[in-house]
Nucleic acid binder design. Structure first.
Length: 472
DNA sequence: TTTTGAGTTGTTCGA
DNA sequence: GTCGAACAACTCAAA
């Protein structure tokens, strides 16, 4: 009898699951599947992994295990180096007189994962299937066969490529014949998602959110997505990060949503949202073709950052004295997520106002984001710092006050995340240091005591950054 | 090979 | 208050 190992990494779902589908095909009607998740020590101990994302992952494993059990299956969890662990499982299968049909896993394009997989493939019958991107790296190239490094042409080519593509969603199997005598660790239970993290893990929740977003949020997406005070975005990033949603299914569901409801706003919303999903693919492709971006500037030579540890501390704890920046940083630490505009704004503040190395910010974000993904996070940070592919021009420096006025006009976002500013009148909310002393007293918010004075003067910092980056 | 046009997300200043 | 231009120069994409 044949057995397929389904090695689960960041594809925690059963529907539209090409890896599981391949594993099933390889063993036929009578064969068995062994769904495995391996707790890999270097990943668990990585300085880029934080508790919130780990808790989300573990919760996702619990949810997947429950989904599997409903189909007569279960998840096997092991701990150890993946190569040895898989070899051990292969040995267990073969010593029981069964035939290993193959080890099936979704491709993972991050540098660590590629090295790991190459090593596994050397010794074991391992095949990567599918991709966490909608279109896999290599599928979108310039006519001369080299990868794109500018988003807009990539976007155009991506859309052409998608139009040549066909997709028929693979339904979740109703029953999965499973090898059930293999021993498994229990999923570590000590880590639970804090209640401040608004992302219940699991495929069912992911599907529910996708449907809800496509029914209601998509119509206002284009106008509300930049507003930090509204729930204008899809909030699907953690689910896409761990493959609780199939990225291909997301795209095709969204496209189908325009066709079935030809509402002008919905159409615009889907179009805008699709462009965001293409950014996700873009950075996955960039990291695949240029793995060096994880440690080095994509474009510019080394930059001699100021890297003041005190400035960095103030930034990461949310005590810069600029309310939107502080709201953003506290939202990150408490909820494990940050609004897209808040990410740009706080990244601009760290790299341009404080002249701190983007890698410091990148690592901090990775430690706290539930959706933290090496490709997207690195792409975003290098873009913000002006060192990346298709980077922001060096003179594009966000003004935290005007950005706040524009994208959090009533200060709801600030009041939500920076409670010491809760009673500050709207007129002063984005620049509280301008409050006259009697207003500070009335608002129970003394600047310098209850809430910090600005860490740097933005106008001065802007000039300093222009000068600094001008020289580079 | 050469040439031309374009490049996510902003801010400030002066008319 | 609104609007357009300047903020540079360079690399990339595509004809």
């Amino acid at each position: 009898m044949k057995v397929s190992i389904w090695w689960i990494r960041r594809d925690l779902r059963l529907s539209d699951q090409p890896v599981l589908d391949s594993a099933l095909r390889a063993v036929g009607e009578t064969g068995q599947i062994l769904p495995v998740f391996i707790l890999d020590p270097p990943l668990l101990n990585s300085p880029y992994l934080g508790e919130k994302r780990l808790a989300f992952l573990l919760g996702g494993l619990r949810a997947l295990d429950a989904d599997l059990r409903r189909r007569g299956s279960r998840l096997t969890v092991r701990h150890g180096p993946p190569g040895e662990t898989l070899a051990r499982l292969a040995w267990e299968i073969e010593s029981a007189g069964l035939e290993l049909a193959g080890i099936f896993a979704e491709a993972d394009h991050s540098p660590y994962a590629r090295q790991r997989d190459e090593r596994v493939a050397r010794d074991l019958p391992f095949q990567p299937v599918g991709s966490p991107a909608v279109l896999p790296p290599g599928a979108v190239l310039k006519p001369d066969g080299t990868p794109y490094t500018i988003y807009t042409p990539f976007n155009r080519a991506w859309k052409v490529r998608l139009s040549q593509d066909s997709h028929s969603s693979i339904p979740a199997p109703t029953h999965i014949n499973t090898l059930d005598w293999v021993t498994s660790l229990s999923i570590p239970a000590e880590l639970h998602l804090p209640s401040t993290v608004p992302f219940p893990p699991g495929e069912e929740e992911a599907q529910r959110r996708l449907n809800y977003f496509l029914e209601s949020g998509i119509r206002t997406y284009q106008v509300h997505r930049d507003r930090m005070d509204l729930d204008g975005t899809s909030c699907l990033s953690p689910y896409l990060r761990f493959g609780m949603l199939s990225p291909r299914q997301v795209v095709y569901t969204a496209l189908a949503a325009i066709e079935s409801a030809p509402d002008e706003n919905a159409g615009r919303g889907v179009e805008t949202w699709l462009n965001e999903l293409i950014w996700r693919d873009f950075y996955i492709h960039v990291l695949h073709h240029f793995p060096g971006v994880r440690s080095r500037n994509f474009r510019s030579k080394e930059i001699y950052w100021q890297n003041d540890p005190g400035d960095f501390d103030a930034w990461r704890e949310g005590y810069t004295g600029y309310p939107v920046v502080d709201a953003a940083m506290r939202q990150l630490c408490q909820s494990g997520w940050m609004h897209n505009r808040a990410r740009m704004l706080s990244a601009s503040f760290l790299t341009k106002d404080l002249l701190v190395d983007w890698r410091w910010g990148e690592r901090w974000f990775m430690q706290h984001l539930v959706d933290g993904d090496p490709a997207a996070n690195n792409g975003g940070w290098q873009w913000s710092a002006g060192t990346g592919t298709d980077a922001a021009p060096y003179f594009r420096i966000f003004n935290p006050v005007t950005q706040g006025l524009k994208f959090d006009p009533h200060g709801t976002y600030i009041r939500r995340w920076v409670p010491e500013l809760r009673h500050v009148p709207e007129t002063y909310l984005h620049a509280p240091w301008k409050m006259p002393i009697e207003v500070q007293r009335a608002a129970q918010c003394k600047i310098g005591t209850d809430y910090p004075a600005p860490l740097v003067d933005h106008a001065w910092a802007r000039e300093r950054a222009l000068d600094f980056f001008g020289k580079v």
